[in-house]
């Protein structure tokens, strides 16, 4: 499996670099459908925020890691581990990091640089169910698996039961090799 991981990561980095075109201020969660809605437009996302305590007061702080608008989550599709007992880069206790992953490219508003971010899933427990986010910058369909997020990245683990998703910086976009 190791060779496959490396292959996918290499491919993903290459693709992620090519597909990175974004503005730091343009965030998916802020776009509204029409004018009647006050909720951010997130397919599948009606109840999780409302029912499970995720923050959505319209502030869209790109530096708060318990919000979908946190800059590293620009392509994260799942439950935030920061709401599930983990951190931005660590899985909650009792879970295991995924052995395979996919990669996004996100813009850090603090230093103005683009970073490659690995969206590992945390696996093996029951699903966390809190703070669901659905961000898709640079995301591509399943035929570009290394940059696809409509799949369970716990799929290669001994237990593939999905719990939540972290976002680990791999390096700066364009300088991380690959």
């Amino acid at each position: 499996m190791k060779w496959l991981d490396e292959f996918i990561e290499r491919k993903a980095r290459a693709v992620a670099q090519q597909t990175s075109r974004r503005s730091a201020l343009l965030r998916i969660g802020r776009v509204l459908v029409g004018t009647a809605f006050v909720l951010p437009v997130l397919p599948f996302d009606r109840s999780p925020r409302a029912q499970h305590g995720a923050v959505d007061d319209g502030k869209h702080d790109p530096l708060d890691p318990q919000r979908c608008e946190y800059w590293r989550y620009c392509a994260l599709d799942g439950h935030l581990c920061t709401c599930c007992g983990g951190t931005i880069t660590s899985c909650p206790p009792g879970t295991e990091p995924s052995s395979v992953t996919w990669i996004g490219t996100c813009h850090n508003p603090e230093d103005g640089k683009d970073y490659l971010v690995s969206y590992n899933d945390c696996c093996g427990s029951a699903s966390c169910g809190r703070c669901f986010c659905n961000e898709n910058e640079g995301e591509r369909p399943g035929y570009r698996m290394g940059v696809h997020n409509d799949i369970n990245w716990c799929m290669g683990n001994e237990s593939s039961v999905y719990h939540c998703t972290v976002s680990v910086i791999l390096g700066q976009s364009g300088s991380a090799g690959g």
Partner: peptide
Amino acid sequence: MHDEARDGSHKFPAK
């Protein structure tokens, strides 16, 4: 379809 599309808006609900 939705307007004001951008990179990452391809799963947006239809306006």
